[in-house]
């Protein structure tokens, strides 16, 4: 099997792919990026926490017009994963308003983004309908 690397460092691959956040030890605020401090309380200590892999679509858009090289249409969404908001595309679903809806139940899924010159696969993530 080809070597794999996650598209972003907050995606953990393996048998049970999931996302991890930096959680502020002071106030519990969660962030997916590298932090200098907590934007909520200013403290500088964080712990890594796993994020629920299932959630509910709180907002979406179907992007039909994008930069050259970005395949369209695609569904961009904000998903509520057990109280933590996550940005991600909705995948494995037809990108139209008949198949995508607010409040829809989804789960994390991974997909191959591409393979580099050394044969390493980059793995991205999205959310797919549950039981759809």
């Amino acid at each position: 099997m080809a070597e794999q690397i996650p598209l972003v460092d907050y995606l953990v691959l393996g048998d049970e792919p999931h996302l991890v956040a930096n959680q502020c030890t002071g106030c519990g605020a969660r962030f997916f990026d590298r932090r200098n401090a907590c934007a909520s309380c200013g403290k500088t200590e964080f712990t890594k926490v796993g994020i629920d892999t299932t959630g509910e679509v709180r907002a979406f858009t179907i992007v039909s017009f994008a930069a050259p090289g970005v395949p369209v249409p695609y569904v961009a969404a904000m998903v509520d994963c057990g109280g933590t908001s996550v940005r991600g595309n909705l995948i494995n679903v037809a990108p139209d308003p008949e198949h995508v809806s607010l409040g829809m139940k989804v789960r994390l899924a991974t997909e191959v983004i591409g393979t580099d010159e050394q044969g390493t696969e980059a793995i991205g993530f999205g959310f797919e309908p549950v039981g759809g």
């Binding site: 598209l7 992007v63 994008a66 395949p71 695609y74 980059a122």
Partner: peptide, 10 residues
């Protein structure tokens, strides 16, 4: 490792 616009939201 690659651009995320269009891959992780918009």
């Amino acid at each position: 490792v690659a651009p995320i616009d269009g891959r992780i939201g918009t």
